[in-house]
């Protein structure tokens, strides 16, 4: 990567919950203009890691650095203020409120600073529409309720909001997991768009088919440990899958299933007819 200073770095981070070691000695460097995929099967520590990155949990040991400086987030708002924006799976949006109202929630543009000063709704609507158009989303009507949007559209609004409000590091928690093929493709496009704007994108997923096409770097987590960070040129899709599942090759699983099916068929030969 061209930049020398990582936009965000974890150095020797461990998280313990009582006697449970959720994360151990995690080192990750994420550079501006890079999509860094954090991959892992269920229970690998992805959720804990994202909570450390976004400021929900504080590491038991180790350091977090933003632009080379050590930081200690006390809550997600502090992380946001330092340019680390996280789009959680609940998306931080309120379904019954309009796109614009959600977009500006907590950062409403007003004409003066008095508590009851008029909210500049015209400007808010046009800014929200423009911010989404910038990353390639066409909003039919910014006053429609977020609840009327599809999952992919909601995800896109959340990403557009983070980009618009000056995020340097964009953390996406399983952004494609609940989406259909078309919608997932749409979200993946926005991830690339964000990368081209120079953001550092941390893309957490367990779906290699979504992560591999857009990722530049892959960090593989397994049972709370970092199993290695690889540039895309150094690792194939199959290798990623194999490491993610802890060496348990899918082919082995397939063979086991086939053997099981064969034994069932052997026990009940008449059932097939």
């Amino acid at each position: 990567m061209s930049a020398l200073v990582p936009a965000m770095e974890l150095s020797g981070v461990s998280v313990n919950f009582g006697s449970v070691k959720a994360l151990q000695d995690i080192d990750i460097k994420v550079y501006p203009g890079e999509v860094h995929c954090l991959l892992g099967d269920n229970g690998a520590g992805k959720s804990t890691l994202i909570k450390v990155l976004s400021g929900v949990h504080r590491p038991s040991r180790g350091q977090i650095l933003v632009d080379g400086r050590p930081v200690a987030f006390r809550n997600p708002r502090e992380a946001q203020a330092m340019g680390v924006a996280t789009v959680f799976q609940d998306l931080g949006m309120i379904p019954l409120m309009s796109i614009t109202r959600n977009f500006f929630l907590g950062r409403e543009p007003t004409r003066s600073s008095l508590p009851f000063s008029r909210m500049d709704k015209e400007r808010a609507n046009s800014v929200a529409k423009q911010a989404m158009a910038d990353i390639g989303i066409d909003v039919r009507d910014p006053t429609q309720a977020v609840g009327t949007l599809s999952g992919g559209e909601r995800q896109s609004v959340a990403i557009a909001r983070a980009v618009h409000f000056g995020a340097k590091v964009l953390i996406l928690d399983e952004p494609t997991s609940a989406l259909g093929v078309h919608q997932a493709a749409m979200v993946l496009k926005f991830i690339i768009e964000a990368r081209m704007r120079g953001l550092a994108v941390i893309f957490i997923s367990h779906n290699i088919h979504h992560a591999y096409p857009v990722g530049d770097t892959f960090t593989l987590l397994n049972r709370g440990r970092n199993r290695g960070t690889y540039a895309k040129s150094d690792i194939s899709r199959d290798e990623v899958v194999s490491i993610m599942s802890g060496g348990e090759d899918l082919k082995v699983v397939e063979a086991e299933i086939e053997a099981l099916l064969a034994s069932i068929a052997a026990q009940r030969p008449a059932a097939a007819l």
Partner: peptide, 10 residues
Amino acid sequence: QTRYGNWIFA
């Protein structure tokens, strides 16, 4: 019309 109103909804 106000920011406070937006906060009430939220």
